[in-house]
Amino acid sequence: MRCIINGEMIDLPAHIRTVAQLLQHFRIHEKIAIVEINANIIMKETYEHTAIADGDRIEIVHFVGGG
């Protein structure tokens, strides 16, 4: 599957089908990430069963503490 993630076209391994799996793939902790798919924000409690589809525009924002 190919998705546009943070502006870049990325080929994802076939086993990645949900937002939770996507975050796991990028090693981003679910609770501190914000995910938007095709300009719709995804509620954290639905990451497990929100499916991603070919061609989706996905934005992932993770929080950092530095300064």
């Binding site: 609770k31 501190i32 954290k44 929080f63 950092v64 503490g65 530095g66 300064g67």
Partner: peptide, 28 residues
């Protein structure tokens, strides 16, 4: 906040916007 070459910013206005705890379920 920023680290490396990555950064982010967000304005929290009481009684109007979600607060930081709404966005972050736990302290990273």
């Amino acid at each position: 906040a920023c680290v490396g070459s990555y950064g982010l910013s967000y304005v929290i206005v009481p009684n109007e916007t979600p607060c930081l705890r709404c966005l972050l379920e736990e302290v990273p």
